[in-house]
Simulated scan of single mutants.
Amino acid sequence: MQGDVEEAVEALLNAMLNLRFKADKSVLANALAKASLIDTAAYTVESVQNFNAAQAAAEAVMKNEALSKDDQAQVNKAAADLNEAIYNLVPKAAVQGDATMQTGGSSAKTGDTTPIAVAFAAITLAGACFFIKKRNR
């Protein structure tokens, strides 16, 4: 009977020594959730290939239940690599727009010829004249 107790105590002590805290995968889970929302059809083939490779590696790390606190660097690297791949996705070339559209600092051609600054100045001047007339009465 004493031998059974000592054996059970030994097994329990070994099990307690082998207990490890699991790696925190919350950042990786967030990166995978963000990645799942991305429509890869809008990006170049090369950047999508890099993204898919990073996503597959991150999913493999996420599924690995044996990772402990000691393996946290591996989890963090997978999350960082996936976030970098998301950031480095390159949009496909935009469709060429109408040649009559203006580019740069001014507004698009809408048919009006009066710049907005002139219209604003006219409204401000009219308001000032109204208040001056009202005060002079």
Results as ranks from 00 to 15, higher is better:
58 A>S: 11
53 A>C: 05
46 E>M: 02
66 A>I: 02
78 A>R: 01
58 A>L: 07
69 K>H: 11
71 D>G: 11
63 K>D: 06
73 A>M: 04
54 A>T: 03
63 K>Q: 12
72 Q>E: 14
52 N>Q: 15
52 N>K: 15
69 K>R: 11
62 M>E: 13
71 D>A: 12
52 N>F: 05
61 V>F: 01
58 A>P: 09
48 V>F: 06
81 D>T: 06
48 V>N: 05
57 A>D: 14
59 E>V: 11
78 A>M: 00
70 D>W: 07
57 A>G: 13
68 S>R: 06
64 N>M: 02
81 D>G: 08
58 A>W: 04
72 Q>W: 08
61 V>M: 02
68 S>G: 14
79 A>Y: 01
71 D>R: 08
48 V>H: 05
78 A>L: 00
72 Q>N: 13
72 Q>C: 10
54 A>D: 01
48 V>C: 06
57 A>E: 12
48 V>L: 07
64 N>T: 09
76 N>I: 00
59 E>F: 08
59 E>M: 14
59 E>S: 14
63 K>N: 14
73 A>Y: 01
77 K>T: 14
77 K>H: 05
61 V>A: 01
58 A>G: 09
55 Q>T: 13
61 V>I: 11
60 A>V: 08
72 Q>I: 07
65 E>W: 00
53 A>G: 07
59 E>Y: 10
78 A>K: 01
61 V>Q: 03
66 A>C: 00
47 S>R: 09
54 A>P: 04
72 Q>Y: 09
54 A>V: 03
81 D>I: 06
70 D>C: 02
58 A>F: 06
46 E>A: 11
60 A>K: 14
68 S>Y: 05
48 V>G: 04
46 E>Y: 01
56 A>I: 06
53 A>E: 10
51 F>N: 03
56 A>W: 09
65 E>K: 10
75 V>N: 05
80 A>M: 13
71 D>L: 08
49 Q>K: 15
54 A>H: 02
81 D>K: 06
76 N>L: 00
75 V>S: 05
54 A>E: 00
64 N>D: 15
48 V>Y: 04
81 D>P: 11
62 M>T: 10
73 A>N: 10
80 A>G: 12
58 A>E: 04
60 A>R: 12
70 D>K: 10
47 S>K: 09
46 E>L: 07
52 N>H: 09
47 S>G: 08
70 D>E: 14
81 D>V: 06
46 E>I: 09
60 A>E: 12
55 Q>E: 14
78 A>G: 01
49 Q>Y: 04
58 A>T: 08
50 N>M: 07
